[in-house]
Design a protein around this nucleic acid. Structure first.
Length: 419
DNA sequence: TCTGGGGTCCTAGGACCC
DNA sequence: TCTGGGGTCCTAGGACCC
């Protein structure tokens, strides 16, 4: 059996852990730049605030219903996630952390366990130790455990936070209950195609022929079909090295000058370099993109990206920033108001297996230099050591008007309790 | 005025090899 | 008039996830 454990309204719940006065009250968490809604408490969902709602369009509604609005505090969410995952890892030797708020556990050899009480126990412990509410779905396959989890979300009281699909009847009933658009792995395009075939539930989907599914939804769809039929097809996937690393941001205001954009791109490249060094990889290729604000129909639009093959694999901040700036020069055009830019590094080689080239311009001295920079930044705080091409005066700021304290990662923000 | 960020996998088609 | 057969690798684009 597989268990899927999912934190309920994760970001909103993280904020509420440290603000118990907000229990029962509507909360939303906004994306970077306080742009749009990326998490909602149940109360906020009930007010009809959709996922992805632009914050400025909903400001009136927020005020009217006294919705508590938070800027994204990823330092807090990441740390809370680690705590939850650490607790869950005690419940099975085989775990796949699927996202910041979700984990699969493989329950192999648990035949003699009462899985219902096992799931309820997980839930109690996570809530007690972290304050985060979770839902547990258990079933013979991954996609069915996803489905079981969805049932818990819909019927929290009846299920006591844990639902198990362990019989043919339960599986069929659940499949008939699940709308096709809510099936894990069926997105908007597949939904359209399937509905055109009169497929409206997960059950209908499992009744299609293998051939049709494979021809129309590729091998991925076919695997999903089998998995939903109760044939374990999707296994836990090992934590792997990342294959792409991106740092991209929208800006609070539009940039028109090359220098402004260059500073951002240099910073994004530096951030990618740091992330690369963290997983001990070097990249062989890098992409820079810039674009104007697509929502502004009144302004001239421009969007371009460029992929640069590097002459050698590197994870040096200095080198990557240099390549990124050269790339930016090639695609930058005067006369546009830029809203977003990003750097994506790809095509990785392990740090210790770099292929030397005949005419290698690679600067070996960067290796100890980067190690030193990483060490200093770890000790004295992020970004203490930066390139001169980066924002040395701290001019750039993200819009984060409702940022909560870093309760668990900054000693100055730790909560005090009056006994 | 204001609309997020970061990933994965698969396929078709083109370029190349013998 | 007739013009082979069997491969690999790479990439862009499209689908999906949170």
């Amino acid at each position: 059996m597989f268990a899927l454990i999912d934190c309920n309204n994760f970001y909103a719940s993280c904020e509420r852990v440290f603000r118990p006065d907000l229990n029962g009250k509507p909360i939303v968490v906004l994306s970077n730049n306080d742009g749009c809604v990326i998490a909602r408490s149940n109360e906020a969902k009930n007010l009809g605030i959709p996922m992805g709602a632009p914050a400025f369009e909903y400001e009136k509604l927020f005020n009217h219903h006294k919705v508590h609005v938070f800027s994204a505090n990823f330092a807090l969410y990441g740390d809370m996630s680690n705590r939850v995952m650490t607790i869950l890892s005690d419940y099975s030797p085989q775990m796949e952390i699927y996202s910041i708020d979700e984990s699969f556990l493989k329950l192999k050899g648990f035949d003699l366990f009462n899985l219902q009480s096992y799931g309820e126990e997980m839930r109690k412990k996570v809530t007690k130790w972290t304050g985060i509410p979770i839902s547990v779905g258990i079933a013979p396959t991954k996609s069915l455990s996803k489905l079981a989890n969805r049932i818990v979300k819909k019927y929290p009281e009846q299920t006591k936070g844990c639902y198990i699909i362990d019989s043919y009847e339960k599986r069929i009933k659940a499949l008939k209950w699940l709308k096709i658009e809510n099936v894990w792995g069926i997105g908007r395009q597949h939904t359209k195609r399937l509905q055109a075939q009169n497929v409206f539930t997960a059950y209908d989907f499992t009744q299609l022929s293998d051939d049709w599914v494979k021809n129309n939804l590729t091998i991925v769809g076919l695997r999903l079909k089998h998995d939903l039929q109760g044939i374990p097809t999707l296994d836990l996937t090992e934590a792997q090295m990342k294959k792409n690393i991106a740092t991209t941001r929208s800006f609070e205001t539009n940039y028109t000058k090359f220098e402004e954009l260059a500073e951002r791109v240099s910073t994004f490249a530096s951030s990618c370099a740091e992330k690369l060094r963290k997983q001990k990889s070097c990249c062989n290729s890098l992409m820079v993109f810039i674009h104007t604000n697509g929502h502004r129909k009144d302004l001239p639009q421009y969007s371009r990206n460029i992929v640069v093959k590097l002459p050698f694999a590197t994870n040096s901040t200095i080198e990557l920033s240099g390549f990124a700036l050269k790339a930016l020069k090639k695609i930058f055009k005067d006369g546009y108001a830029y809203k977003k830019a990003g750097v994506i590094v790809q095509d990785f080689t392990p740090e210790n297996r770099i292929q030397q080239t005949l005419f290698d311009n690679r600067n070996e001295r960067h290796i100890p230099l980067m190690q030193t920079i990483d060490k200093l930044n770890l000790q004295f705080g992020q970004q203490k050591i930066r390139l001169a091409s980066q924002d040395t005066k701290r001019v750039w700021k993200m819009k984060q008007q409702k940022l909560s304290p870093h309760y668990t990662t900054n000693l100055n923000d730790i909560i005090t309790i009056n006994v």
